[in-house]
Amino acid sequence: MRRSIRRLFGGGSGNSDDARPDGGTVTTGRKSALALDGEFVQSLPFWVPPALLVGLFVYGAIGWNVLISLTDWSGLGQPDYGSLDLSMYARLVSDQSFIAAFRNTLVLLVAFTLASLLVGLAVAILIDRGIRFENGFRTVYLLPMSLSFVVTAIFWSWMYNPQVGVINEFLRAVGLGALAQQWISDPRFKLWAVIFALMWQFSGYCMVVYLAGLRAIPTEQYEAAKVDGASTVRMYRRVIIPQLRASTTSAAVVLMVFALKAFDFLFVLFGDTPGPAADILSVMMFREAFSTTNWAYGSAIATVLFALALGVIAPYLFVQYRRGEL
């Protein structure tokens, strides 16, 4: 707001008034004590209590989890922090079900992210064509995002029902009955069925992010592209979509992190044993830790999940930080 006022009235100086004369004397910097120290002390009561909660529950717990993964704690006893080793991680490497879950997690991560981004972008572009009832359409497309995974998993288990489910009924209705499948029991399809359902739920989120990106592009650019004679498709491909990189990045990060922790939906659909075709790390972690009380082993899987998430978010946050956009 203030910045725009500045722009309107061009001449204003205000904060831009920080003089930058060259060759000024460089002083050994005694940092200005008064204002900053005072402000620091005064800011403490505001952020320290929440920071303590986050520090304890998020960062403390992550550290603790790593520690537990180094023990061989299982069953009803207590973890023994006396002897720490990497035996759980060694066990991971040779565990076929871990390798399957790891592979499935990566497939889910890539396919789900790409599908949601593409559908979300397409929907956002359609919505951004200056349509009527825009709010109504947007509300419908984002609706699945407001539902619990427990709820959507129940809907989709019905959708995928081989006899009377909507998907197979629809295929039969349009004459493609041969394609009707046992979507969530056939190992060939169950992971893709999950990805499709999750795409249904998350593409609305991508639409919101892309729509914000599209709205940030000045209308002059659309008009300029039209005047230059570009077709609508070319205009989007050459002018508009390249400018949505920031939206794509931030949406992709959120989707990938979600793919790593996706649990509720699979758990409701399959319980804690989706089978090797659809097992993913987050479900396997739960199964190992909470169903078979292999606590240390579960923690090791959780640490792998955390490392994967860190691999996704650390570069993103670093770039955001460098751009001063935090």
């Binding site: 998020v58 959780a302 946050l317 935090l326």
Partner: peptide, 14 residues
């Protein structure tokens, strides 16, 4: 900000 992205599985056991 990083806390937004933590997979909850990483804290469940603790």
């Amino acid at each position: 900000v990083a806390g937004v992205f933590i997979p909850y599985q990483a804290v469940l056991v603790p």
